[in-house]
Design a protein around this nucleic acid. Structure first.
Length: 297
RNA sequence: GCCUGGGUAGCUCAGUUGGUAGAGCAAUGGACUGAAAAUCCAUGUGUCGACGGUUCGAUUCCGCCUCCAGGCA
């Protein structure tokens, strides 16, 4: 007895993942499930590119805009909740642009204890005063193995490792390891990968479209709703730039630039972490080719 | 027309008391175990505006021309 496979549509921002997912779900009689952490939040629909109703093609979309802006998430818990949704959905088509969160969804992260907020904040405060190199030396003293994996200039990973050490008293490297890699059993995945020039154009066009839809207003609405001080929520690309103000054309150009760089990082992650996943060029290959690569007759 | 600044990497600019140049951003490649739309790593041959002069040697000094910005007429 073999269960029907689940499908994962991956790829960089603006590549056309969402519209492909709609087509795939239509063929399967299934639903689209969000695996993107930022698109999961309410109040960020435009700037994070959540599929609008007009783009959903009458296919059920689950997990978009569902979390309150005040919520905090992490890849493991988010992944578990997405897994729950997937298990309750017939013929789910997962869409995500986040490699780390895909790890969470596919259960490919070590089970690490929750680090209390206070410890995280304390370590961040240290970093501000001492700088990453000093903290890296500290980490090297308590966990040489983990320290060797992290560059001395990489504050975010150094802080994370140190916080984990302080929270547990142990070595982070002892807590990590043994995770599975690759595409899990029962999954069929596809990376949507436009050619580089096409990707840059797609990003520019999409940013312009999002601005037309009222991105700047959305950013101010989030601020007015009391989320200005909560930088965690304003991390998604662009929001801070809108709130800083300035020449709108300059902001647009900067957002396009940052988004293009981000898209490149996404491609690197998907293609190098899961090299076995087939890639599909949305501008050069037909929908049937995509379906074929997903094993849909 | 005159005066003053300025023309150096794709962009914004440093700099060279004369020995053919370097930062930030961008770009390209890469990493990635709870900040991930984050964070970090690697990669720099550009007629140093044009032409001429001085010099062993000029992007640097001098002359002339040209373009841009501002000011005065």
């Amino acid at each position: 007895m073999q269960n029907a496979p689940s499908y994962a549509i991956l790829g960089p921002t603006a590549s056309g993942k969402s519209s492909l997912a709609v087509e795939v779900a239509r063929r399967l009689g299934g639903a689209v499930v969000n695996g993107d952490p930022f698109q999961a939040f309410e109040g960020l629909a435009i700037g994070t590119g959540q599929p609008l109703e007009s783009e959903q093609g009458g296919i059920p979309h689950l997990g978009y805009g569902a979390l309150p802006l005040s919520a905090t998430i992490n890849p493991a818990d988010f992944g578990a909740s997405v897994r729950q949704t997937l298990s309750e959905t017939a013929n789910p088509v997962l869409v995500t642009g986040s490699g780390l969160y895909l790890r969470g969804i596919w259960n490919q992260l070590s089970e690490l204890p929750l680090v209390p907020e206070g410890i995280t904040e304390r370590v961040r405060a240290w970093e501000g005063v001492l700088g990453p190199r000093t903290l890296h030396r500290y980490l090297a003293a308590v966990d040489p193995l983990r320290a060797a994996q992290i560059h001395p200039h990489d504050p975010s990973r150094i802080q994370r490792a140190l916080a984990l050490h302080l929270a547990t008293g142990g070595r982070p490297s002892d807590l990590m390891g043994g995770v599975l890699r690759g595409v899990p059993e029962g999954w069929r995945a596809l990376v949507v990968l436009p050619a580089r020039d096409a990707m840059r154009q797609r990003v520019a066009r999409r940013v312009a479209w999002m601005i037309g839809k009222g991105w700047e207003e959305e950013a101010h609405a989030a601020l007015a709703a009391g989320h200005g001080a909560d930088l965690r929520r304003l991390r998604p690309l662009g929001y801070e730039l809108w709130l800083e103000g300035g020449d709108p054309h300059g902001v647009e150009a900067r957002i396009v630039q940052l988004t293009q760089a981000y898209a490149k990082r996404q491609v690197t992650f998907f293609c190098n972490q899961w090299p076995e996943i087939p890639v599909w060029d949305p501008d050069g290959e037909s929908l049937d080719v995509a379906l074929g690569k997903l094993g849909i007759a």
